[in-house]
Design a protein around this nucleic acid. Sequence first.
DNA 1: ACTTTGACAG
Length: 698
Amino acid sequence: MLSKIPANPPPRLVLKFFKMFSHYDDIQRARHLFDKIHEPDLRSWTILISAHTKHGFPEEALNIYNTLRARNVKLDTYVLLPVAKACAASADLIKAREVHDDAIRFGFSSDTLLGNALVDMYAKCKYVDGAKRAFDDVKVKDVVTWTSMASCYANCGLARQCFGVIRNMGLNGVRPNSVTVSSILPACTELKDLNLGREIHGFVVRNAIGENVFVSSALVNMYASCLSVRQAEFVFVNMFRRDSVSWNVLLTAYFSNKEYEKGLGLFHQMRSEGVKLNQASWNAVVGGCVQNGLNEQALDKLRQMQDSRFRPNQITITCVLPACTNLESLKGGKEIHGYICRHWYFKDLTTSTALVSMYAKCGDLDLSRRVFDMMTRKDTVAWNTIIIANSMHGNGNEAVLLFHNMLGSGIKPNSVTFTGVLSGCSHSRLVHEGLQIFNSMNREHSIDPDADHYSCMVDVLSRAGRLEEAYEFIQRMPIEPSAGAWGSLLGACRVYKNVKLGRISANRLFEIEPDNPGNYVLLSNILGTAKLWDEASKTRKLMRDRGIPKTPGCSWVHVRNKIYTFVVGDKSNKQSEEIYNFLEDVGKKMKLAGYIPNVDFVLQDVDPKEKHEILCNHSEKLAVAFGLLNLNGESSIRVFKNLRICGDCHTAIKFMAKIVGVHIIVRDSLRFHHFRDGILPGHQRRPFQFQKLQELLL
DNA sequence: ACTTTGACAG
């Protein structure tokens, strides 16, 4: 057939073939034919552009449009229509503005058909102002015009404006159709307004559009997020027809409402009953597992997903990264980082941010920072992540610096930014900076400080030892001081041995959170240190009487893909003897280097010699020793503790790091502590080897 | 023509 086309074919003939081939998805051949036309008319151009968009090549469609545009021919609404669609498909705002300008220049912007396409185009680019302008230009607005505008607001998280459009639509005598309803239901989902949702449901029933799968799926979703899973189930069960999305919606509904067993059950059912699964189904399950703390299962489902020939996408990857974080699996996180690089997913803002967070929480701040620095675009969440990462690792100065860089690059801070940077200030005792930033919240950024911000400020003052000021600050707070505020003060009373304020804050905490064992233990420790044994035992008795179990402290460390856990005085480990011998030997070295055991942290009333032994028993010391004894060429170890690190251990581990030259990272219930003072100027840090340490200790 | 599901910071 092809050979029968003359060398210089008449346009109409080519057009016929062109239509045929574009229909059969053979864009290359269509293009080839098009190129044979000497002077293609506007109709040929239109078909060429729309074929490229329709077959998933919107960028190429826009390139073709550029070529056409360069010829300075007069355009019409029919050619701009597929161009607007191409902009929508590629979410290309720059091109979108050009197209809009062209439409205005040629006087087509009041046209309903083209205007609708322009509104939708801006909606897909998430550019509300443009959509509104295009919308206002349309003279005769039909249901599509109104729906597109409402949909734009809904997708941009402007639910109130969305319903405003719908109200106006009614006032203008246009009735919503099924598309309108399915477009506005997500806005209702966002507002979590069950009553509004029910109202819409009523409209659906009255107008008999419930058989529409878009409408009913959106209803299921709306009920699920308005915390009415039973209603969601009811709508689902009574659906006329269900597609993959409908099933996925219910699946997500179970997981996000903590009913993960039902979620897993439904997924099993979907697979066994031959429901057509898609990538989103797997994402829902993988993400659902993580949401519900089923971290291993999430990784398992990821493997199953790949076995079922589904490729994990950015969303899958972003969903599972927190599973690595929760498992403290730096290794697993790095594997996923590799996958991200291989698939170019690092271009995705959300995915990169998740990576930054994962590295920080797994204890590798350097890698976290490296990923952050590689990001080409950074939004508020990305900046918040790196600020929080630095605060979490005790780098308050860096957190403050990053905060100012963020402002400098024109990114707006939100309330999370301030909790992040202020907690950094407290960890690094940056009182002046903390106060300054706190005061700027309202003045410069119009953000009202909430309970967390006030607690951070109490922490800033308390940790710096300014306990009386912190107490005054609490009393002058315009909102009810939260447990966080009193907790910071109490914690600092332990460090600075302030019995008076310790009693006050603990008693407030006993009222606010009577079931938190930590507060009783802290007060009892403060009293014990002050040798007020009677009062200390009264506090412990109060705790017992209220039936509050004390959380046992434990520490753990990852060695060769296994987690080894230690409790105080633990002797269950195979290498226990080695551990205690090591601690004794290194202890001697430490004392020579100037370490003085701080027996304040022993709360039993026993003789000094025994106190020293008790200190050596602490779970974090045991875990650190075990980690050091099992180093495999690494220059750092990571130890985790469920409670806050003991003050003596903090000092002791600092000395250990110095003596053995290993970077020791301890993550306790509050943050990461880095001990790496062992590097002397001019000395290269070498991987630690056990033999060398033995020599050193002899 | 416009429509339903899916994530990152605390």
